[in-house]
């Protein structure tokens, strides 16, 4: 009898694992879409801040300052509850993508700006000394180096977005964390579902952080950033 009970429990357990795992697609859609959109916005903004005319530079600076002051939950609430009032009701997933894109674009902008400015003055001088024009120096020396300098931070940024996507729970996006909490509420046991989602996040974030560190070390070896 006891044996049968535990069998039933096990079947139940696997059903719940399945429910949580099936929502991993939503987590990926949410985090990858917001991350890529944020990258596009941030690249644009960082180019403006480094090379643009004065008033636009100021505008970008204020954008970053303001957006970096807003907690992600608040951004999600504003897009989810606020937009309908202006006649743009959006499903939770889209609100979450917009919210994360907005907040993360400010962080990525700082990352890209830092990378462009991180290319040493000496490298730029050397580029001019062999007769490269401003544009060509940017294209062949600054950009390739800035790109490499930005990679470790950019990979880390994805881990951050992935983990932050769990906050979309606030507006009911059914990604893995939300699904885990739902399961926990049904089976009245938080421990196992939470450990399971932790494991899922870890399996993605740890390799990413490992790769990011490898890139970072390579940059130091190549003398492109200080140790």
């Amino acid at each position: 009898m006891n044996n049968v009970m535990s069998w039933i429990k096990d079947i139940q357990f696997f059903t719940y694992v399945n429910i949580i795992l099936s929502s991993i697609t939503t987590t990926f859609i949410l985090s990858i879409a917001s991350f890529i959109l944020a990258t596009i916005v941030a690249l644009l903004l960082s180019f403006i801040e480094v090379f643009g005319p004065r008033p636009l530079v100021k505008a970008v600076e204020w954008y970053v300052k303001i957006v970096r002051g807003i907690p992600l939950i608040l951004a999600l609430f504003i897009f989810y509850y606020g937009l309908p009032r202006f006649g743009f009701p959006l499903p939770p997933l889209y609100s979450a993508i917009i919210g994360i894109t907005l907040v993360d674009s400010a962080y990525q902008e700082q990352l890209f700006k830092g990378a462009i400015e991180g290319v040493s003055e000496k490298q730029i001088e050397a580029a001019y000394a062999i007769g490269l024009t401003k544009w060509k120096a940017f294209r062949h020396v600054i950009l390739p180096q800035a790109f490499r300098i930005a990679i470790p931070g950019w990979i880390n940024e994805f881990s951050i977005v992935l983990k932050d996507s769990s906050i979309a729970y606030a507006i009911g996006v059914t990604e893995i964390f939300t699904q885990a909490v739902h399961v926990a509420q049904v089976i009245a046991d938080y421990l196992k579902p939470l450990l399971l989602v932790s494991l899922i996040y870890l399996c993605i974030c740890y390799p990413l952080s490992y790769i990011s560190n490898r890139f970072h070390r390579r940059l130091i070896e190549m003398g492109m950033i200080g140790s």
Partner: peptide, 13 residues
């Protein structure tokens, strides 16, 4: 472990 998981999960835990 802490770096690899969201703060949300840690809080709920």
């Amino acid at each position: 472990i802490i770096r690899g998981t969201p703060m949300m999960v840690q809080l709920f835990f």
